[in-house]
Amino acid sequence: MIDIPSGPDALTLSEAAARRLRQDIVGGDLPPATKLRLRDLTARYGLGATPLREALARLAAEGFVVLEGQKGFSVPPVTRAHLLDVTHSRQVVEPEALRLAMGQGGAAWEDGIVSSLSLLRHEIARRDPASDAWLDAYEARHHRFHRALIAACPLPSLLRFCDDLYLQKSRYRRLMGSAHQDWPHILAVHEALAGAVLSRSADAPPLLAAHIGTTAEHVLALLGEAPPGA
């Protein structure tokens, strides 16, 4: 087990613990409703109780971990209500961040969108949906693309909120699986979105909102539930 230093190094260990826990929760390695006991986590990550406890408290504040009084910490369950909460929140804030980015973005912002789309296209072309490593790589490219769209937004707090909501939604996208997805259609949707953004089209923010809604529709269909408004 790693010794727990004091001062700035302790904060670094706490941040590292939070990052690893968040990755395992979002990626599904720690499934929904899993109890997060310190004894198990210290064995899993080789970290001491103090940085892990701080990481759990931080992730609880961010919504990635649930604290239930005397019951301790656990991975949040996946529910229709939470999925729709995250989806609708993204549909409110991310198109607004995009609108601001389209008003502020210059050549470097445009280059970032083009390069991130190229990386996403390459990742889809080499797809291996049965591979967890490939799914991790695809998620990283997909997140990079969505970040690139709003990167020129001048409000850092709004960008951080968009990031948090994106990661919350990623749990549901990973649970969907990828073996039966229509990858040519997925790529075409992202290419159309990039084109609308780069041309500063007024249709780009609502197009982004509609794109964000598709994951919720697919997950609800897998759960045998009707989408909202149906």
Results as ranks from 00 to 15, higher is better:
M1Q: 13
I2Y: 09
D3Q: 12
I4S: 06
P8Q: 14
T12H: 14
A17E: 04
A17I: 03
A17G: 05
R19D: 15
R19S: 15
Q23E: 15
Q23D: 15
Q23P: 01
Q23K: 13
V26Q: 05
V26N: 03
L30I: 11
P32R: 12
A33I: 11
K35P: 06
R37M: 07
R39S: 15
D40C: 03
L41N: 04
T42A: 12
T42G: 10
T42P: 02
L47V: 09
G48E: 11
G48S: 06
P51I: 08
P51Y: 09
R58V: 03
A60V: 09
A60W: 02
A61M: 11
V65R: 04
V66W: 01
E68G: 03
E68H: 10
G69W: 11
K71N: 12
G72I: 09
S74E: 10
V78W: 07
V78L: 13
D85H: 12
R90W: 05
R90T: 05
V92G: 05
E94H: 06
E94P: 00
P95E: 05
E96T: 13
E96V: 15
L98F: 04
A101G: 02
Q104I: 02
A107M: 06
A108I: 07
A108V: 11
W109C: 01
E110V: 14
D111I: 12
G112D: 07
L117K: 03
E123Q: 14
E123W: 03
I124P: 00
R126K: 07
R127K: 14
D128W: 02
W134E: 03
A137R: 09
E139R: 06
A140M: 10
H143N: 06
R144Q: 14
H146R: 01
H146K: 03
H146W: 06
R147P: 01
A148R: 04
A152R: 01
C153T: 07
P154Q: 12
L155I: 15
L155P: 01
L155K: 08
P156D: 11
L158G: 06
L158D: 02
L159G: 00
L159I: 08
L159V: 07
R160F: 05
R160I: 05
C162L: 05
D163T: 13
D164S: 14
L165Q: 04
Y166A: 09
S170P: 00
R171A: 02
R173E: 08
R174M: 01
G177F: 05
G177M: 04
S178R: 13
D182S: 02
W183L: 07
W183D: 00
I186S: 11
A188F: 06
H190R: 08
L193S: 00
A194W: 00
G195P: 01
L198Q: 11
S199F: 10
S201W: 08
A202G: 10
A204Y: 02
L208T: 01
I212K: 03
G213Q: 05
T214I: 15
T215V: 15
A216W: 00
A216C: 09
E217G: 08
V219P: 00
V219S: 02
V219T: 06
L220H: 04
L222D: 10
L222C: 09
E225C: 13
E225W: 14
E225P: 01
A226H: 08
G229R: 07
